[in-house]
Amino acid sequence: MALCEAEKTFILHSVEENFRIDGRQRGDYRPMELETNIVAPSFGSARLRLANTDVLVSVKLEIDSPTLEQPKLGKIEFFVDCSANATPDFEGRGGDNLATEISNCLSSAYKSSTAFDAGKLCILKGSKCWKLYVDILLLECGGNLYDAVSLAVKAALWDTRIPLVKSVVVDGNKVDMEVSDELFDCERLDVTGAPIMVTVCKIGDQCIVDPTTAEEHCSGGSVVVAVSKSNFSTILQTGGGSLHPMTLLESLKLGQTVAQRLDSTLINTLKQINDNSTDVGFLK
């Protein structure tokens, strides 16, 4: 989508006046909708819809052996799939760059042990651990992908139930383990520290959060900050353009406060979800 100069001017001025084209202020978010446990065969799943951005995340588990360098840690792997339904640009290999960018950003954000405790995923030091496959499917793009993806990933991880391991028997080099047969003998992951990403978009001289597609087109550059609790876990610059050190600092501050607000809202919402609610799915 290309915008004409007059539309860009209109958006630019609206950001300057702190009254954006849909009436939001610079630090405001659009309302979102969340559903967890939406993909039955997976261990945990979530779907988040933020205006026109639609993200589906599912978590799968497998038993793997830990790496030699980190024998006590489990593994987590992110895979992003850009559906060509989202925009025609994703057709063929068109979305690959964006997909790797998002998955790299996520894995670096989840690397820190304070953000995500991979030690809990270890079953037997050095030989057995859980591996989490987090599959992210972008169904629709309406701006602000990173934020939506990180929120959906956090919700899906919150929803994930890991089967309890009853016993582990070591016999020489062979490791035998018994997983509980009970369907509901599971434990949840602790995701309170899981990072939330916030895209801070620079338009004119001001910084905004949660840009729409049109606003993204007007932006001179943006910073994605991943914040876990109150610490930064990853910072990434996307889009062309350069940022002045002062602007960068400002946007980091804005990103941090917004991420904390988002985080507490998300956790509150997740607590409200009860398991017996009916499935909504995609049919409106």
């Binding site: 909708e33 969340l34 779907r47 929120l151 809202t265």
Partner: peptide, 17 residues
Amino acid sequence: MSNKIHIGIASDRVNPS
């Protein structure tokens, strides 16, 4: 709604009809 973020739950969705 200044500064407040809304995350709704899908099962509580209002019927737009």
